[in-house]
Design a protein around this nucleic acid. Structure first.
Lengths: 110, 110
DNA sequence: TGCCTTTATACGCATAAACGCATATATGCA
DNA sequence: TGCATATATGCGTTTATGCGTATAAAGGCA
């Protein structure tokens, strides 16, 4: 089937997209940017992560267009590319909460 | 702040949750299960992935409670744990589509 | 018990990710 | 040009991941 190869290709792209979400620091960056644009130094201070590490995480997000940048002199301000990212993350978070609660409930019964 | 440590812990959990979504085969498994429960052999055949690999991916999903299992004799049927997972993935997919279209538009202009 | 089917896991290999450190690059300004 | 600030990257090390092969474990049934 042609559709099989296509589905695999789309899944590859989507997995790569999700990969960007699979790091706690990157998630914190996205949540911070959801409240407003930040430059690299601000993010590093806010998240208590050293600047090179922050910059590298931002690169991962930037390469996948989850964030975009605006240069103002020497500072680079990062913006969340799409608020729906937060919407999707919130859904995942509530699913996760329910799954954890369900698991905790199972533990009590035993 | 106490909230800082808490936010980091939640982000760690959420990142771990997202990690399960960061592999194309696992995404295809979730989409397949969204159409109905499947056992391991069925999934392996459907996705053209050998059985041990399929089983390993299912373990990743199972450990995070994205899927749950029902045993019937020797066969183990996997179920999607929460339809909202697909909802979140669909949102991510549409964000991704828009980002790719945006990127393609930028390339044309050049 | 012994065999068959289904599913899970151990092992080894190749590859990729994350991080800290040092350093390079870019921009503004004196 | 020279210096300072802000950001990005190269490098080496440690750790994690994905995969194929072989094999183990679990359950049904003769």
């Amino acid at each position: 089937m042609v559709t099989q190869a296509l589905a695999q290709e789309i899944s590859q792209l989507e997995a790569d997209f999700c990969f960007a979400l699979s790091d706690p620091t990157r998630l914190l960056i996205l949540y911070a940017l959801a409240e407003g644009p930040r430059n690299v130094t601000e993010l590093a201070n806010e998240l208590q992560v050293i600047q090179p590490t922050t910059s590298r995480h931002l690169k991962v997000l930037r390469e996948r267009d989850l964030v975009y940048t605006v240069r103002q002199g020497t500072t680079v301000t990062y913006h969340l590319a799409d608020p729906r990212l937060i919407q999707a993350l919130d859904i995942l978070r509530s699913v996760m909460r329910d799954r954890l609660a369900h698991r905790a409930g199972l533990m009590e019964e035993k």
